[in-house]
């Protein structure tokens, strides 16, 4: 009997450690903001989806190619954003959605580069991520990706900045607690790119990471560095199984 209880306790603890409270940030929204996200007309993020569609069809570069010329309808990329970032064994590096689109733009279209977090890049990433809406986040973290994944985990747990806080301090250990008028989120990244009312605009996962770093008074990471992408991979893994919501609405 005692043995059973011990086993049960152990199993619960293990499950608890391995299975963080994976609730989408949506669950922390009030009714007004939930309604805003759910309203496919009024959700302000849809402005970027619209813009993305226009860019998708726009020819550019010396060969006057558009995204559509190669990929057809955006829905053909439905099973992509939910699986990013991913490790590319040929280049030996991680890629996220922003980088894949930027590479496509400069290498295949040979068009002018899209700058990080620019409205045009956000429009395309939001359009593509929007295609995956409803699909569960599912990133590969073993095999060649395992080293980067462990770097990401270490980064998540490392204290930083003048406030000396790690990501885990707030979003793992204190998730669900109150901080001023808000509930501390579990740090799930299934809504990105998302419309954040604080920004009055759209932002990527990397913008949120930078914002968080700034909030704990830490030096922001270069959003294209492998270090930043490793953290994004770890965050995506923590959010595994959650349905992608792009473009989500958050406070």
């Amino acid at each position: 009997m005692k043995c059973w209880l011990l086993l049960l306790l152990l199993a619960t603890c293990c499950a608890g450690a391995d299975q963080p409270d994976r609730r989408s940030g949506y669950s922390l929204l009030g009714p007004d903001l939930r309604a805003l996200q759910d309203d496919d007309f009024a959700n302000p993020g849809m402005l970027w989806v619209d813009r993305g569609e226009r860019l998708w069809n726009a020819a550019s570069g010396p060969n006057q190619q558009s995204c559509r010329d190669c990929h057809g309808d955006p829905v053909n990329l439905r099973d992509l954003a939910n699986r990013l970032p991913r490790f590319d064994a040929t280049t030996n590096r991680l890629d996220n959605l922003d980088m894949l689109i930027r590479q496509c733009r400069t290498q295949r279209q040979q068009a002018e580069a899209l700058t990080h977090e620019s409205e045009d890049l956000l429009a395309l990433t939001t359009l593509v991520a929007h295609q995956s809406r409803g699909l569960p986040l599912e990133v590969v973290v073993d095999g060649p990706a395992s080293t980067a994944f462990e770097q990401g985990r270490a980064s998540f747990e490392r204290r930083r900045g003048q406030l000396d806080l790690s990501c885990a301090d707030c979003h793992e250990k204190l998730r669900g607690a109150r901080l001023r008028g808000e509930t501390i989120s579990a740090g799930m990244v299934n809504g990105f790119p998302l419309y954040r009312l604080t920004w009055e605009g759209l932002g990527s996962r990397q913008r949120m990471i930078r914002w968080c770093n700034e909030a704990v008074r830490a030096k922001p990471m270069d959003p294209e560095s492998q270090r930043a992408l490793a953290l994004e991979l770890y965050l995506a893994w923590r959010s595994r199984g959650l349905a992608l919501e792009a473009p989500a609405v958050r406070r």
């Binding site: 001023r180 808000e182 914002w211 968080c212 909030a215």
Partner: peptide, 14 residues
């Protein structure tokens, strides 16, 4: 109007 967590008056490129 409730107050958000963290420094939500951050303004600039972030």
């Amino acid at each position: 109007v409730t107050l958000g967590a963290c420094a939500d008056d951050l303004y600039g490129e972030f």
